[in-house]
Amino acid sequence: MVIHIVEDDPGVNESLRVLLQALDHVVISHSTATALFTAPLPTQDDLVIVDLGLPDIDGASVIRWLKNLSAPPRVVAISGQSQKLIDRALKGFQALTVLRKPLSGDALVSFIA
């Protein structure tokens, strides 16, 4: 399993990568949605962590794109936005896990496991 990170905040992006690598995961991190789109596709075995507040394309669109892949990977959304904005952005998504920032490593680890 490869864990893909799509997060524009450099601190969050790197600390996520460092934590996941410390847990012996293979990690590919991107700071924009465009970077994810142009990289090799995540596979069904992979996990993609998507920040909802991306600068180029909104996180919800990225998640929709991922879910529509022929072999969609698992997806977890992360966000520092208000619950109202999260609800609005993710309207229509079924059973999508959202972890709110500040992000607890334990919550993330238990999701991965």
């Binding site: 905040d9 601190g11 969050v12 790197e14 600390s15 996520l16 460092v18 934590l19 690598q21 410390a22 847990l23 520092g80 936005q81 208000s82 920032k101 500040p102 992000l103 607890s104 490593g105 334990d106």
Partner: peptide
């Protein structure tokens, strides 16, 4: 709300870095 939002990112990073070291 603004402070909460602005502090969220660095605090998330701090927590994840610390957890990375501990783990």
């Amino acid at each position: 709300a603004a402070i909460a939002h602005e502090l969220n990112q660095p605090l998330t990073a701090v927590m994840l870095y610390l957890q990375a070291v501990i783990r």
